[in-house]
C-alpha cells in the first residue's frame, strides 16, 4: 500500500463573483522513501495541492471533493485535533522563504525544541540533546553554540537547514517541501538538494517536492507529476519524463529552458500566457496555447491515461480514435 494516495482532489476558492478551481481533480500516489516532484508554473495549483494535503487551506478556499489517504486513514475525515497530532509527527512541511517561517525573537534551539515539546513529554535536557542531534544531522556546525542564536544570525541556506531539522524532529514519514531552494543561491541550492536526498536515504521518509524548476526535478526526484491550471497533465518516472515527454505542455516547458549543454539560437517558447485559474478554457485546459491543438480539444477534457510503464498523459493525441468520436 502506498504511503499517500490522493484521489480526485478538488480545492476551490469561493470569491464574491466567481469560483477559482485552483486544484481541479488531482490523483497521485507516493511510496515510502520516494521523492515525488510536483512541477508547474504559477497558477498550476501545485502549492494549493500541498496545502490541501496538510489541511492548511484557508478561507475562502475549501477542499470540495476527493480523498487523501495517508498511512491508511483519510485525512479529510479527521477531526482538527487528530489532524494537529498528525502534522509535525507523521507529516511535516517546509516552505520557500525559510526566513519568514521562523519567529525572529526566539532562539533557533527553542523553535526546533518546540516541535518536539508540542508532541511529546520529554525532559528539557533531552529536548536539548535531540535538538543538537538534529542540527548536526542537517549539517549545521557548532550546534552547541548556534542553538542559542536567533534566525537573523543565520544565512538563507542555514535557515533552510534549520527548517528541515524542525520538519524532521519527530521522524515523520512524509516531508512536503514547497519550493525549498527557490530563494537560495545555486551553490547553496545544491547543498540543500543533496541534504534532502541524503536524509531520504537515511530516514526512508517520503518527500513531496513542489517546484517550478525542471532542473531541480531532474536532479532530485524519482517520479514527477506535471501540473497545469489545477490538473495533472502528465506523470512519469523522472527518466521517462525527460527522455520521452508526451504532453505538448511538458514538451514546451522542457523546450523553453536554455540548455547549458548546447547552445541553440532560439528557445521553443510556449505561445501566450497562462490564463487565470477562474478562466480555464473549456475542453483541454491547455488548448488555447497548444501547438498541436485539434477540434476535439476545445470540447472534451482529456482524461489521464496510461501510455507506458507508470507514464500517464492527459492528451487527445494519445487517445484511441474510437474514444475521440464519442
Amino acid at each position: 500500500m502506498p504511503l499517500l494516495e490522493v484521489e480526485g482532489l478538488k480545492t476551490h476558492f469561493f470569491g464574491k463573483r466567481s469560483v477559482t478551481k485552483a486544484v481541479d481533480g488531482v490523483s497521485f500516489t507516493l511510496d515510502h522513501g520516494e521523492i515525488l516532484g510536483i512541477v508547474g508554473e504559477s497558477g498550476s495549483g501545485k502549492s494549493v495541492t500541498s496545502l490541501s494535503l496538510m489541511r492548511l487551506v484557508d478561507h475562502p478556499g475549501r477542499v470540495v471533493a476527493g480523498s487523501i489517504r495517508f498511512e491508511g486513514r483519510d485525512l479529510l475525515t479527521l477531526s482538527r485535533e487528530e489532524m494537529r497530532k498528525l502534522r509535525g509527527r507523521r507529516m511535516s512541511m517546509i516552505f520557500q522563504e525559510p526566513g519568514t517561517s521562523m519567529n525572529p525573537v526566539l532562539t533557533v534551539g527553542f523553535q526546533i525544541g518546540e516541535a518536539i515539546r508540542s508532541h511529546e513529554r520529554v525532559e528539557p535536557a533531552e529536548v536539548r540533546r535531540r535538538t543538537m542531534e538534529l542540527m548536526e544531522m542537517v549539517g549545521i556546525p557548532d550546534a552547541k553554540q548556534r542553538l542559542n542564536q536567533y534566525p537573523h544570525q543565520f544565512s538563507g541556506g542555514m535557515l533552510q537547514r534549520l527548517m528541515i531539522a524542525m520538519g524532521l524532529a519527530l521522524s515523520p514519514s512524509l516531508l512536503i517541501a514547497d519550493e525549498p531552494v527557490t530563494a537560495l543561491d545555486v551553490t547553496i541550492q545544491a547543498q540543500i538538494l543533496d541534504l534532502l536526498k541524503d536524509l531520504r536515504d537515511t530516514t526512508n521518509a517520503a518527500v513531496l517536492l513542489i517546484t517550478h524548476d525542471m532542473g531541480v526535478v531532474a536532479e532530485t526526484c524519482d517520479r514527477v507529476v506535471v501540473m497545469y491550471l489545477g490538473a495533472i497533465v502528465e506523470e512519469a518516472p523522472v527518466e521517462t519524463l525527460f527522455d520521452d515527454p508526451k504532453h505538448p505542455y511538458t514538451q514546451g516547458l522542457l523546450g523553453s529552458i536554455p540548455s547549458i549543454e548546447e547552445k541553440v539560437e532560439w528557445l521553443q517558447a510556449i505561445p501566450g500566457t497562462i490564463p487565470n485559474a477562474n478562466e480555464i478554457p473549456t475542453g483541454c485546459r491547455f488548448s488555447n496555447r497548444c501547438p498541436k491543438v485539434m477540434d476535439v480539444c476545445h470540447t472534451v477534457d482529456p482524461a489521464l491515461e496510461f501510455v507506458g510503464e507508470g507514464h500517464r498523459v492527459a492528451c487527445h493525441l494519445y487517445t484511441e480514435t474510437e474514444d475521440r468520436d464519442v
Partner: peptide, 25 residues
C-alpha cells in the same frame, strides 16, 4: 567550476558528482 557543477541539469541521467562548496558567502 563549483557554480557550474551546482546548476541543476535537466537530464536525470547526468546527476553529476558536484564540486561541493562548504559554507556560505
Amino acid at each position: 567550476r563549483a557554480l557550474m557543477s551546482s546548476i541543476p541539469v535537466t537530464n536525470p541521467r547526468l546527476r553529476r558528482e558536484r564540486v561541493r562548496l562548504t559554507g556560505d558567502i
